[in-house]
Amino acid sequence: MTPPRHDTPLIETIHMDKSYFNDGLETPVLHDINLTINKGEFVAIMGPSGSGKSTLMHILGFLDHPTGGKFLFQGEPTESMDEDTLAKIRASSVSFVFQSFNLLPRTSVLENVTLPLLYHPTIPVSQRHRRAVTAIETVGLMERMNYMSHQLSGGQKQRVAIARSLVTEPEVIFADEPTGNLDSHSGIQVMEALQKLHHKGHTIILVTHEAMTAEHAQRIIQIHDGRITADRRDFRRRIAGRESTLK
């Protein structure tokens, strides 16, 4: 893995707004979001529930569209992209770790991890197995590879979800409250897995309302009532985090 280059803006939003419309009634969710996230960053978006942090993540992850302003991905404007282009970006450039794991039921760990490769536009069929096994190895679940998803503990499920998110080697991994449904021990394991990915050069955007979880990131963006209220980079914490992982 090449060392992360912090000078390339991976994600850039300029005066970005988002409102939901219900029966003609406008509900503003995000206001004037100006944000630059570089490749290789580990960013936590923090805020109380209803603050708009999940909506922000969905927009940045191409699951939702802004209603105003600009959203550039790798310097490319995104507003005129059609469904197929969006699907292609979701398949190859972004990936998600969800709070509720979202593994396919009655399906093995290996098959769950292979799933994104089915939709990847360029990875050949012959590479699928090797890539999936490598990803499972990364999260330390080799011995559970042929287990069915319902036979796993919550923490294991989330690690499978992490393996699934990195199997396509995306530009950025979004993690939406990845520890929200886990006990503290499993939560720490999951965060350590994400840390490890970060140190390997992956860009990680974490959404959480827990300060403890956000501590793992090198940069914390505070969001409140749809506005960014703080954006802190703390290199000491980043170094401390790295040391704690290396221990």
């Binding site: 699951l63 398949a91 994104p116």
Partner: peptide, 16 residues
């Protein structure tokens, strides 16, 4: 429905 949402999030196109 959730599975469909997941597949779309993982990159499935409408055609898929």
């Amino acid at each position: 429905t959730r599975e469909i949402g997941l597949r779309k999030a993982l990159g499935a196109t409408q055609w898929n």
